Amino acid sequence: MDRLTLRVSPDLLRRFDAAAADQGGRSRLLRRLMEQAAQAPFPEPVRSPPAAGSGKLTLRFGQPDLALLEAEAASTGLSRTQWTVALVRRRLHDRPQLTRHEALALIEMRRELRRIGVNVNQIARALNTAVLDGRVLDLEVAQLAAFRDEIAVWIDSLGEAFQGNLAYWSARV
């Protein structure tokens, strides 16, 4: 005999089991409903072609491994499917796989670097167009040095973020 597997919400399963209790059980009621459905005329299904370049992969894990997978995925804020896809993509494409939180943090870093870059451009433009006395020039140069240091910190942070991400998704020995 063939087997049919489907996912249903716990509430739907509870209600179905209650209905199936006096019908001979879950399997018997399902077979009866399927027989009835197979006898009824159905319109020809309209099948949409599968999305280009996509496919489905089904993995089966034992309960201990599944529990570990779910815990690891939850610790990163991903579902187990998202976590597994990220792991496979990391190995296939050799590039970081970012969670939503990480992506938002990197977007914020980009904004900060852009803000600093705009300030540096404004200072450089002022230095190129103005004749400044020694004290004002020293302040501008000091501000440029502070921006340079801040940019270096952000760039180091980005590098650490990417290295940490790559290390997380790499094979553990």
Rank of each mutant, 00 (worst) to 15 (best):
E160G: 07
R15M: 05
A167Q: 06
E70C: 11
L104C: 13
E72M: 07
R15H: 09
G55E: 08
A21K: 08
R89Y: 03
A105N: 12
A40P: 00
T5Y: 02
L158H: 11
R31Y: 04
E108G: 10
S9Y: 10
R95M: 07
E35R: 02
A40V: 00
R60H: 03
D17Y: 08
Q23M: 05
R15G: 05
H93S: 06
R95I: 01
M34H: 00
L144C: 05
L12E: 11
L4Y: 07
L12T: 13
E35W: 00
Q122H: 08
V85H: 05
R7K: 10
W169G: 03
P96A: 12
A146P: 02
E70W: 07
G25S: 10
T58A: 08
D11I: 10
A161P: 04
E150H: 14
L127W: 03
T81K: 03
L87P: 00
R47Y: 11
Q39T: 02
A67T: 15
L12D: 14
S27Q: 10
A124P: 00
A21N: 06
L68K: 11
A145R: 14
A167P: 00
D138F: 09
L59A: 09
A67V: 15
L12P: 01
V88S: 03
D22Y: 03
L158R: 14
A71Q: 11
V141P: 00
L87C: 06
A52K: 14
N128G: 10
E102N: 01
H101I: 12
V173A: 08
L113F: 06
L68W: 08
T99H: 10
P45A: 09
R28W: 02
R110I: 05
A124F: 04
R60V: 05
E72R: 12
S79I: 09
V141C: 04
L6I: 10
A152P: 04
R125M: 04
R100L: 14
N165W: 07
L92Y: 02
V131F: 06
V153M: 11
I107E: 15
V136R: 13
A103C: 01
F42H: 08
L6C: 05
R111T: 14
L78W: 13
R7G: 08
R15A: 12
L12W: 08
G55R: 06
R172K: 01
P10D: 15
A145T: 11
P41G: 02
S27T: 15
I123R: 06
G53E: 03
A161T: 10
H93V: 02
V85A: 15
P64E: 11
E160M: 11
D22A: 13
G159F: 04
R135C: 02
L132F: 08
L57D: 00
R7P: 01
L6K: 02
L98G: 04
